[in-house]
Design a protein around this nucleic acid. Structure first.
Length: 308
DNA sequence: CGATTCCCCTGATAGC
DNA sequence: TGCTATCAGGGGAATC
């Protein structure tokens, strides 16, 4: 499932590939993915939009669009007007969504990659939304579960929406200090794993990395956040930075079906210590990794290293 | 207000 | 073999 490192991988790749291109058409077979507007309106609004920049905020992908591209670029007032008019295409990939970039042909109702390569082994059968670009290539959203969320709105609208505005701090920003973590976590009575995954507390951490961070910090996932000692908070803070940075460097984890825009898997899966390793030996002490339920989610931990 | 439960969706897997 | 039931899981809404 895409969390901060996976979304960062997607965003940094897409920045290199599609900024400056124009969206000339859109296709979808799961129109429900598009929220807050009908597909027809969405299509009308996005056609001929130019991709200006791409950012990540938490697990959200923000694609800034200039909705109309005029050739009269020398007209400064018009340029200024359209800057104010910028739209944002927000994509949240949820569990199984991911963006792919390439060329596909529709064959017997299925999108098939034109060329041999990683995209062939990818999850093409779950492509439900396709943006056609003016360089002949396509940006496709593959999503097995169809849980992804796609919203188009004015830049102001999107940046002020709950999706973005209510997000907590970015854990990899330099401004995210130990003090900030303490402030965010201090008064929370909930279990630390839940708190780490709460997007309002810290943006971008989900089930995989919360398990990995807590294992490295030697903290039991059920420990109430407000009971953590300074030393423990420091350990969480350091593990968070190290693990997320390493995962970004390794281009994410492909535990379910995450792929980068070219259809390649992330490499962090080989580094995982506890996530989805129930019954395997803890890499630190050899005790068998346990899995416990936490509100419909599963937490993986080492019962010897991570005592409650 | 906080905590819990349900729901969205569908492939994989277990049980019969 | 083939059908049915169960499960996973981010996040939002409804409910306790």
């Amino acid at each position: 499932m895409p969390e901060l490192p996976e979304v960062e991988t997607t965003v940094s790749d897409l920045k290199k590939k599609i900024v400056g291109l124009k969206i000339i058409d859109v296709w979808a077979d799961a129109k429900r993915l598009i929220k807050k507007s009908s597909f027809e309106i969405f299509k009308k609004q996005i056609k001929n939009a130019e991709i200006k920049k791409i950012e990540r905020r938490g697990k959200n992908i923000l694609i800034y669009l200039n909705p109309k591209s005029y050739s009269a670029k020398s007209d400064i007032s018009r340029e200024a007007h359209y800057t104010l008019d910028l739209k944002i295409l927000l994509i949240h990939q949820k569990l199984t969504g991911h963006l792919l970039y390439g060329i596909w042909m529709m064959d017997k109702g299925r999108w098939t990659p034109k060329e041999k390569g990683p995209l062939n082994e990818s999850v093409n059968r779950f492509i439900h939304l396709v943006f056609f670009l003016n360089n002949g290539k396509m940006l496709a959203l593959s999503d097995l579960r169809k849980f992804a969320k796609v919203v188009l709105g004015s830049a102001e609208e999107i940046l002020n929406s709950k999706d973005i505005k209510e997000l907590g701090p970015e854990p990899l920003e330099k401004t995210f200090t130990l003090k900030k973590l303490k402030e965010a976590v201090r008064d929370k009575k909930a279990k630390i794993k839940q708190v780490l995954m709460d997007q309002k507390v810290i943006a971008g951490i989900g089930n995989i990395y919360s398990d990995e961070i807590l294992w490295q910090a030697k903290i039991h996932p059920f420990k109430p956040a407000n009971k953590l000692k300074n030393k423990e908070l420091k350990a969480i803070y350091e593990a968070m930075g190290e693990i997320l940075e390493k995962a970004v460097k390794l281009r994410g984890t492909s535990i379910s079906d995450f792929r980068d825009p070219e259809g390649r898997k992330g490499n962090y899966v080989e580094i995982l210590s506890v996530y989805q390793r129930e019954g395997e030996e803890c890499p630190r002490c050899g005790r068998k990794v346990k899995r416990i339920k936490l509100g419909g989610r599963s937490a993986h931990y080492c019962p010897k290293c991570q005592k409650l």
